[in-house]
Amino acid sequence: MKICVLVKEVPDAAVQKRIDPSTMRLDRGGEKNLNPFDTHALEAAMQIKEGGAIPVEEVVAVTMGPSSAVRALHKAVALGADRSVHLSDDALAGSDVCATGYALAKVLESESPDLVLLGQQSDDGECYTIGAVVADHLKMPSLTQVIQIDVTDGKLRCERQAEYGYDTVEVELPAVISVGDAINEPRYPSLKAIMGAKKKPLDAKATGDVGIEAGSVGEGGSKTKVLGLNPPPAKEAGEIIEDEDTNETVEKIVAWLDERKLI
């Protein structure tokens, strides 16, 4: 089977994120890195491949992004992907979640994967939705927030993190699965893998190469429009209980928690 892993280049965790008010888009300057959640998706792909319960011919990393995103693809292949595909086109700039999902789905159509894996959220936009949009376009089942994948009889048994506990779901392939960071501990790329990253094939694609309709992507093709920007409300001052008599203090804290039905 063939596994495609969607990856994204995001600002490094240490970079303070801000939105550029003139473009209403995230300022993507500064240090960048492969989205940490996507490293878990890559690791999940590698574990399926190495687990041997189902033969995996190829793991392909796929991204959409500017030219700098090549670095994220190099890291993805250093972490084990066999090759990578880079969708890059000026026409894509400003695409919202739906337009991005559509564009990625078109690239995936040209790859015909049996399984699409991705991190459940990106470290920058944190929309959590790309997997579902891609699955919709590909007419594949979609699972989100998956924290365990087992291969049985050519099907996947997955555990989904739910609000209260876990859902165990069996899914037939092909499918689109977004994973949480509890699914595994990603490996470190070895020196050999890092040095060999540039030798693995990297296909650069423009919108026309995969049949993306120009009117469906970019700022014009996006269905959402950012109208305004507001900072989150300032945190309210907390209530400080002075500890004069510890027994009394404990009572006060318990009463406070009880009032709010927290205990």
């Binding site: 600002p11 300057g29 500064g30 240090e31 540039k198």
Partner: peptide
Amino acid sequence: MAVDTAAYREMTDE
């Protein structure tokens, strides 16, 4: 804007 200092670091991609 965050400053990208990579250009002054003289490091290869690897």
